[in-house]
């Protein structure tokens, strides 16, 4: 069974949905963060597949930039989580419900 673009489409959709499920199921902020990274990567995979499909290099450069943004995001996000842990000694996002008040 040869591989078509739709295979990559399904694969990355599956990974994306798993990421979403993880974000919904877990309460650990770090795990949720990791799920977000997973979703970003599924998008990257799709972009590379499309770049092959259309023989267009721009998509791969978008992947590159997504990686850059993801790295920056992780740096700040993990700093925030560390700070949060330092304050409340937990990474449970349900503790962070100050927005309610």
């Amino acid at each position: 069974m040869p591989v078509y673009s739709t295979h990559y489409l399904f694969l990355s959709l599956l990974l994306f949905s798993i990421g979403i499920m993880g974000a919904l199921m877990r309460r650990n902020a770090i795990i949720i963060f990791m799920c977000i990274e997973l979703m970003l990567n599924s998008v990257n995979l799709l972009l590379v597949a499309f770049s092959k499909m259309y023989v267009d290099i721009n998509a791969q450069l978008f992947v590159f930039f997504i990686m850059v943004v993801a790295a920056a995001e992780v740096a700040v996000g993990l700093a925030v989580i560390v700070m949060m842990y330092r304050k409340v000694h937990s990474v449970d996002i349900n503790i962070l419900n100050r927005l309610k008040h």
Partner: peptide, 13 residues
């Protein structure tokens, strides 16, 4: 608005 991030993600999905 429960203040729970999880429920927000839920609603978003």
């Amino acid at each position: 608005q429960s203040g729970q991030v999880g429920s927000y993600i839920f609603i978003m999905v």
